[in-house]
Design a protein around this nucleic acid. Structure first.
Lengths: 340, 340
DNA sequence: CTGTTAGCGCTTTCAT
DNA sequence: ATGAAAGCGCTAACAG
């Protein structure tokens, strides 16, 4: 079977009886080179007929722009990453950018990311991963300061980042519980090596103090289902006997529910539970899980905008997505009926 | 701030006192051009010192190979897609291929995919999505028969595809339930427009027949949490009074559990539940969900291998991942204690 | 309004 | 074992 050659600019030019450069300008709507309406039409018709598509490599080589962004994720497992990826993809598409995905489930993460950037495969890189060490990131940014945006993370020495209002999200959770009458609340968070966790924890403690609520914190090494379930054991073991639990991530919230069920504790009868970050799954848990929704998709979108701005020469900056965290009340929280 | 130019082959060549073409050969270990050990060492040293990285666009332009594969997904939500993506990413990495991701959450899916291929951004395309219509796929394959691999899907007229043993997975679920003594089983599946669903349904009915079990089927328009929960209502409404339910997907299984809880039906006391496809979440549901695990990651890996083979000129073929579906017994299934 | 020219950085014959 | 030269397909500067 003959594999026919992909049509090139020259083919279109020949067909329309004009020069290739004119075809290039017309097809890109280059403002510096208007063709007569008639010629333009002829060119477009020719291009359409033979199904011309500009070769991305040639274009990239010439213009030193790939119109592609890289997104580095730790994996696809967590719903937050799924949301971020979705937001990134959508916004990138709107802006005419393609998306190269890298998870560093496999191989050396630092090699993966530097590779994408250094080979010129992408114009900018969105790094949304807690697993890459701060100093690797700083080194990378030294080499390519105009190309790296941190997503859902802040690192000293990296000037371009986008984060959510994590502290406020915790505050919303605590406020909700306090209004339901809870006076002893335990927060179960992930490791302090993640700055999201640091902010959520800080917001949690601050709001508790503000409201005169007794707060305790359990710190887990991970932030997945298991960490939530294991965290429950620790939360119940202490002498504080909390009547409400705040889970630092959505998966932890799922684990907390499972852990409490395992321990024979009724939710929300005896203990109320709120998780930070919302997900569609919440409606199908038993009981339906009350959450604090944050704008994870917008986080991705803002990161894309920032990355493109950097590529265009703008100065790096730190963005906080302004959307206020929003309580999604379901069945895992209830008024405290004193049971001391 | 001076943005220093990225080093090129010529830079390395100048530094090592040789020609650029030699540098190219040495750095790629081109078998046709051996340099003396000493020269090669000098070249490598120079490249290392200035941090030379081949420009992907130039390389792609010249060699008409991008060393990049495209993966089209409907989204990141479902755990199966997450697994497939993970398998694809890992295997692509091992083979030296990059990965361009496209979901068609945004925009016209057909445009998204043809675009990636037609602009020469990718050497091959893995399509793992039920949302693209068969005829769009056939049209695409006509244009680029050596570049498209269907993942977890088969379409008439598309010769390259990789699928799992869906029918066998259903059979494993039915066999398990039959062995526990269940004689009336209802399967809740997604739409018949998805060939995975057709195969799972067929396997379900075949195994039921083989074992002399009374089987009924509920067909839902979707295959997500909600479809599972809604499916339960239908399953319980009929006169068949099943003692066990098979959910066509993992999310449906989650929904089934939720729906049964809502209906006040004890699992596994009154009804047993099995879901097709496994996920880590299963251990954190109430009750822990029994599943049939399929090799979704390997599905992705096999798709990558097939795509690369096609690019290298091999003939398209249909692959069935041989790994047998495997029962993961948890708490949502139990022996039938007669309750007629 | 349109054509000419040069060259992005690399790989690949073909010489030597 | 190494070099010279051509060119992948496109865009951009400059002419006209």
């Amino acid at each position: 079977m003959e594999r026919r050659r992909r049509p090139t600019l020259a083919d279109v030019a020949r067909m329309a009886g004009v020069d290739a450069s004119l075809v290039s300008r017309v097809l890109r709507n280059d403002p510096r080179g208007f063709a007569s309406a008639e010629t333009a039409e002829r060119i477009r018709a020719a291009a359409g007929e033979i199904g011309y598509r500009a070769n991305a490599a040639a274009r990239g080589l010439r213009s030193a722009r790939t119109m592609t962004l890289g997104l580095l994720l730790p994996g696809f497992s967590s719903p937050v990453y799924a949301s971020i990826a979705h937001g990134v993809e959508e916004r990138a598409g709107e802006q005419g950018y393609g998306l190269v995905l890298g998870t560093h489930a496999a191989g050396d993460p630092h090699e993966t990311i530097t590779g994408m950037l250094m080979h010129g495969r992408v114009d900018g890189l969105l790094v949304s991963s807690g697993r890459i060490e701060d100093r690797a990131l700083r080194r990378l940014v030294e080499q390519a300061p105009q190309s790296v945006v941190l997503v859902n993370r802040q690192v000293r020495g990296v000037a371009a980042s986008v984060v959510l209002r994590d502290a406020d999200a915790s505050a919303v959770a605590v406020a909700h519980l306090a209004e339901l009458g809870h006076r002893r609340i335990c927060g179960i968070f992930g490791p302090r090596s993640l700055d999201t966790m640091v902010r959520r924890r800080r917001g949690f403690l601050a709001e508790a103090t503000r409201r005169g609520v007794e707060a305790s914190v359990v710190e887990m090494a991970e932030r997945d289902h298991r960490a939530g379930a294991d965290g429950v054991v620790q939360a119940l073991k202490g002498g504080t006997r909390p009547t409400a639990l705040v889970a630092g991530t959505f998966p932890m919230g799922v684990g907390v529910l499972a852990g409490l069920h395992e321990a024979g504790v009724d939710v929300p009868g005896r203990i109320s539970v709120v998780a930070l970050h919302d997900d569609g799954l919440a409606d199908y848990l038993v009981p339906r899980l009350t959450t604090v929704a944050m704008a994870a998709e917008r986080l991705g979108a803002e990161a894309v905008d920032l990355a493109i701005a950097l590529v265009d020469g703008a100065d790096p900056r730190r963005v906080v997505v302004p959307d206020p965290p929003r309580l999604v009340r379901r069945e895992s929280t209830a008024s405290l009926i004193s049971n001391d």
